[in-house]
Amino acid sequence: MTITPSTATALSDAVASDSALRGFLHGLPGVDQVGAEQRAAALGTRSIKTTAKAWALDLAVSMVDLTTLEGNDTPGKVRTLAAKAMRPDPTDPGCPATAAVCVYGDLVGVAKETLGTSGVKVASVATAFPAGRVPLEVKLADVRDAVAAGADEIDMVIDRGAFLAGRYLEVYEEIVATKAACGQGDRRAHLKVILETGELQTYDNVRRASWLGMLAGGDFIKTSTGKVQPAATMPVTLVMLEAVRDFRETTGTQIGVKPAGGIRTAKDAIKYLVMVNEVAGEDWLHPDWFRFGASTLLNDLLMQRQKLATGHYSGPDYVTLD
């Protein structure tokens, strides 16, 4: 689809009122559940070997948002995590840094201080992560705090309760307000919109939530908080990749995708990369447009890199503990 004034108007009309937005989101074509699951499964069977595998592993490392989101996170833990993000494999200077570290808002300062000018970004979850069940003012204050502490990226959760109740405009306005709280101009923090697909029940809802997040101005759409099962799955990510592809065709704006939670092995990560390439396209094969929200995944990627380099299987004794 080409970008014409009429499509742009159509999209701006879509968010003019609650009923218009509902009409637009419910007018999106339904997801063929069986088809989406089969396509995702089929893309998972590709065999990626040797140099292609080495390239994919390095790319996957550079796409990791190294995450710690626990109640018992300490400044020390965040510092070690940041050190690991900058030099994932100290035995190999050729190993790329990860894209970002992802922490709670109160630890953004610690992460920022450790990462310095390394180029590794600091992502902060905000808006009362993971449930998001507080008044809007509190959520926005949460975001402003994180941005003021130096967060480069904000991972917000949408109000799933409002979404499932059909109050789409409320969700939309909340995302818009959150984006405004992310700052202005060059200093603006990138906004990742967490859909929490594990709570959205259907693929149709995932598609609607994806479009809603993109219309409201999210820079990334992210599958899950990691606190709800199921977290990221291949079919859900497939639906989201289709949404960002269609959104760019419609508006010309490219949006990133971040599956988070449940991706633990290098094999899984490579399956996702194959899917990104086949569904969204090569343009998305870059840390600016695709991320993995993960913690244990990084160690498996490093062990696979070591296996390729040395020719023998590596073990958890040769990577850092999380």
Binding site: Y313, S314, G315
Partner: peptide, 9 residues
């Protein structure tokens, strides 16, 4: 040989 070189054995 694979078990012998495996770093986790």
């Amino acid at each position: 040989p694979w078990l012998a070189s495996h770093a986790d054995v």
